[in-house]
Measured scan of single mutants.
Amino acid sequence: AVSDRLIGRKGVVMEAISPQNSGLVKVDGETWRATSGTVLDVGEEVSVKAIEGVKLVVEKLE
């Protein structure tokens, strides 16, 4: 699937994400809805860990 190529890629949070609410991330110039187990603020760099349906699962870049 086209989304599989995104796993491991870096992105930037465009709309804040929390465990309760999905947000938006931009990866390779495309905007995706994303979820995370932690709070991520706009502008934070993330990496794509998995894909669930049409949402990316991301975590903060260390």
Rank of each mutant, 00 (worst) to 15 (best):
A1G: 11
A1D: 13
A1H: 10
A1N: 11
A1S: 14
A1E: 13
A1K: 03
A1Q: 12
V2K: 03
V2Q: 11
V2E: 15
V2W: 06
V2D: 12
V2H: 11
S3D: 13
S3F: 10
S3C: 05
S3P: 11
D4G: 06
D4F: 04
D4K: 04
D4Q: 07
D4C: 04
R5F: 06
R5A: 11
R5V: 08
R5Q: 10
L6N: 03
L6R: 03
L6V: 07
L6P: 04
L6H: 04
L6T: 03
L6I: 07
I7G: 02
I7Y: 04
I7R: 04
I7S: 03
G8A: 04
G8Q: 03
G8H: 04
G8W: 03
G8C: 04
G8P: 02
R9H: 11
R9Y: 09
R9D: 04
K10I: 15
K10F: 07
K10L: 10
K10W: 11
G11V: 03
G11Q: 00
G11S: 02
G11F: 01
G11C: 04
V12G: 02
V12L: 09
V12S: 12
V12I: 10
V12K: 08
V13A: 03
M14T: 13
M14V: 13
M14P: 00
M14A: 09
M14C: 05
M14H: 08
E15V: 12
E15D: 08
E15Q: 14
E15R: 13
A16H: 13
A16P: 08
A16D: 06
A16F: 13
A16L: 08
A16I: 12
I17A: 02
I17T: 05
I17Q: 01
I17N: 02
I17H: 02
S18C: 05
S18W: 09
S18G: 08
P19G: 08
P19R: 05
P19K: 09
P19E: 06
P19T: 08
P19W: 07
P19A: 11
Q20W: 15
Q20T: 12
Q20R: 07
Q20G: 14
Q20F: 14
Q20N: 09
Q20L: 15
Q20K: 08
Q20Y: 10
Q20P: 12
Q20D: 15
N21Y: 12
N21A: 13
S22E: 15
S22R: 04
S22D: 14
G23L: 03
G23I: 02
G23P: 01
L24S: 11
L24V: 10
L24N: 04
L24F: 09
L24Q: 08
L24G: 04
L24P: 01
L24R: 08
L24M: 11
V25T: 03
V25E: 00
V25L: 02
V25M: 02
V25R: 00
V25N: 01
K26G: 07
K26N: 12
K26A: 14
K26V: 10
V27I: 13
V27W: 02
V27A: 03
V27D: 00
V27E: 00
V27M: 05
V27Q: 01
V27K: 01
D28R: 06
D28V: 13
D28M: 09
D28A: 14
D28F: 07
G29L: 08
G29A: 11
G29C: 07
G29W: 07
E30P: 04
E30D: 11
E30S: 07
E30Y: 13
E30R: 11
E30V: 14
E30I: 10
E30F: 10
T31W: 09
T31H: 11
T31F: 13
T31E: 12
T31A: 10
T31V: 10
W32Q: 03
W32S: 02
W32V: 03
W32M: 05
R33H: 09
R33C: 05
R33F: 14
R33Y: 15
R33Q: 14
A34P: 00
A34K: 00
A34G: 04
A34M: 02
A34Q: 01
A34N: 01
A34F: 03
A34R: 00
T35I: 12
T35G: 07
T35R: 09
T35E: 13
T35F: 05
S36W: 02
G37A: 12
G37N: 14
G37D: 12
G37P: 11
G37Y: 12
G37F: 10
T38I: 08
T38R: 15
T38V: 09
T38H: 13
V39P: 10
V39Q: 13
V39K: 13
V39R: 14
L40I: 15
L40T: 03
L40W: 03
L40A: 04
D41H: 11
D41K: 15
D41E: 12
V42C: 05
V42L: 07
V42P: 09
V42T: 07
G43E: 07
G43K: 09
G43F: 08
G43I: 02
G43Q: 07
E44Y: 06
E44M: 11
E44W: 12
E45D: 10
E45T: 13
E45G: 11
V46T: 02
V46E: 00
V46D: 00
S47L: 15
V48N: 01
V48K: 00
V48L: 02
V48Q: 00
K49R: 14
K49V: 15
A50Q: 11
A50I: 03
A50H: 07
A50V: 04
I51D: 02
E52W: 08
E52A: 09
E52K: 07
E52F: 07
G53Y: 04
G53T: 04
G53H: 05
G53M: 04
G53L: 04
G53F: 04
G53C: 04
G53A: 05
V54D: 15
V54C: 05
V54I: 12
V54T: 15
V54E: 09
K55L: 14
K55I: 13
K55T: 14
K55Q: 14
L56P: 01
L56V: 09
L56G: 01
L56W: 02
L56Y: 03
L56E: 01
V57F: 11
V57E: 04
V57T: 05
V57H: 08
V58I: 03
V58K: 00
V58D: 00
V58F: 01
V58M: 03
V58P: 00
E59G: 09
E59K: 05
E59C: 04
E59N: 06
E59R: 06
K60P: 08
K60D: 03
K60C: 04
K60L: 08
L61P: 05
L61V: 13
L61A: 09
L61T: 12
L61M: 10
L61I: 11
L61C: 05
E62P: 09
E62M: 13
E62W: 12
E62C: 05
